[in-house]
């Protein structure tokens, strides 16, 4: 009895600790600053989009949203493509070379990515890749390749070997086996990894902060950071901006809950 009460109490407290801040933000996007402060938990008087209009009119939504989409899209797709190729090769190469490759990629898992902050910055200045979305995509690919290869090669190794052998007997080369057997079979793994990568690329602040200074190249997290200074305690604008920047994630989370949770935890476990 006491056990059940305590359990119910603790579970509700943490549920509220998540629901309350989130509803303050969501409802705040439809309120005035005054109402946000005086009645943070009250429903908005009307669900009007004034704050959203103001945000769009301020000119700070379209460009960063576009940049974020471009960077995340290309980073995720190129990483998935290159990582799945490499992981397939590593899983199929039973020679020493395959093992060496795997160990080399694993080094990247062991070293925390921040070790590269300074050398990458200096390298990118030399290469003229600062203030460039291509630069951000390259950084994202390099930083997420090791973990993606790790997750996917584990998956490929678990696939029944007979499938590859039969295909091999039929005369299919590695490229065909990859395309028509390995890829279709690993769709769930690729999907989960893709979500994991998308969240990382969409949310990253450190590298954009280092590499991007020009307004027209900024991504959403950078614009949000600027908002912190620009609007200070004008919470109606800040909350609306948070909502807009998180909306793609929220929609995807509701639509693909399972793969989302699988992707984000498998990344954690393997990383």
């Amino acid at each position: 009895m006491i056990y059940k009460t305590i359990k119910g109490f603790l579970l509700s407290v943490f549920a509220l600790a998540i629901i309350i801040p989130c509803s303050i933000v969501i409802m705040g996007a439809f309120k005035t600053d005054l109402k946000i402060i005086s009645e943070p938990l009250a429903l908005p008087e009307s669900w009007n989009f004034d704050n959203f209009k103001r945000l769009v009119d301020s000119g700070s939504v379209y460009t960063p949203a576009k940049n974020s989409i471009i960077v995340a899209f290309f980073s995720v797709f190129i990483t998935l493509f290159l990582a799945s190729l490499a992981a397939f090769a590593i899983a199929r190469l039973i020679t020493v070379t395959g093992k060496v490759l795997f160990v080399l990629f694993s080094v990247g898992l062991a070293i925390p990515g921040q070790v590269n902050i300074i050398p990458i910055y200096l390298l990118f200045v030399d290469l003229g890749l600062t203030n460039s979305l291509t630069g951000l995509v390259l950084v994202n690919i390099a930083l997420t390749l090791p973990i993606s290869i790790f997750i996917m090669s584990a998956f490929f190794r678990d696939l029944p070997k007979e499938m590859f052998e039969v295909a091999g007997i039929d005369g299919a080369g590695p490229w065909r086996v990859y395309r028509s057997i390995a890829l279709p079979l690993s769709r769930p793994a690729i999907g989960a990894t893709g979500i994991f990568l998308f969240v990382i690329c969409w949310n990253d602040l450190l590298y954009p902060l280092m590499l991007i200074t020009r307004e027209d190249k900024k991504t959403l997290p950078l614009t949000l950071i600027d908002f912190r200074g620009e609007y200070l305690t004008e919470y109606s604008m800040i909350f609306t901006a948070i909502l807009v920047a998180s909306l793609p994630m929220i929609i995807m989370y509701i639509a693909f809950q399972r793969s989302f949770i699988a992707g984000l935890t498998q990344g954690a476990v393997k990383g």
């Binding site: 290159l82 190729l85 590593i90 490759l101 080399l104 990629f105 390749l145």
Partner: peptide
């Protein structure tokens, strides 16, 4: 097949 990933990495 592993080369492009390895080169970038």
């Amino acid at each position: 097949m592993a080369l492009p990933a390895f080169a970038i990495y």
